[in-house]
């Protein structure tokens, strides 16, 4: 049989590059926060083992997949959704909608409220994942941007803000 030719969607290459980079970064930051942040750790502990969730754009991505493996470790699992079982899909209805979300012009709840974000999967787990992503965004983003992305900016101690931020960002970059 001839080699399968993958047809890549044309157009918007810059948006796609930006989104791929952001998804990679956020995915690794979730993995890092699960080691650094108590609340994120707790949320992941309450998720079942082998639980995978994906965030991305309909229909051809880009995607990011994060999962909790059988030993309870949280891992960024890359951008391929095809070879995994996904327990929770958080699908933006288009690349544009994902771009709005990741340029922080729109928060997750607003995206959801405007019918641009679709959540498929067990709802209590979906709620937990949204809470995890909110915390991760606080670590990654400067306050004035994070305030646009989440409903309520948390009142953390200065120590948590500074040390947590350094740890999460460093671990995100080195991928540990």
């Amino acid at each position: 049989m001839e080699d399968f030719v993958e047809i890549k969607p044309k157009g918007k290459p810059l948006k796609r590059i930006y989104l791929n980079l952001m998804l990679w970064f956020v995915g690794r930051a979730i993995q890092a926060s699960a080691k650094v942040d108590k609340k994120v750790k707790q949320e992941f502990e309450d998720l079942p083992k082998g639980y995978n969730f994906a965030l991305g754009a309909f229909p051809n991505g880009p995607w990011m997949v994060v999962g909790k493996d059988d030993d309870g470790r949280v891992r960024y699992l890359g951008r391929n959704v095809k070879d995994k079982t996904i327990d929770l899909w958080m699908t933006l209805k288009s690349v544009e909608a994902l771009f709005l979300l990741f340029t922080f012009q729109e928060s997750t709840p607003v995206s959801n409220a405007r019918s641009r974000l679709f959540v498929e999967g067990d709802l209590p787990h979906a709620c937990a994942v949204v809470r995890i992503m909110d915390i991760v965004q606080v670590y990654l983003l400067p306050k004035f941007i994070a305030k646009l992305a989440i409903k309520r900016y948390p009142r953390w101690s200065l120590k948590q803000h500074i040390i947590g931020r350094i740890l999460v960002n460093a671990r995100t970059l080195i991928g540990y």
């Binding site: 409220a113 709620c127 409903k151």
Partner: peptide
């Protein structure tokens, strides 16, 4: 309550 989907749509966290 923390696992109920309607929590997404509430104005405040």
């Amino acid at each position: 309550a923390l696992g109920d989907g309607t929590i997404f749509y509430n104005p405040e966290d």
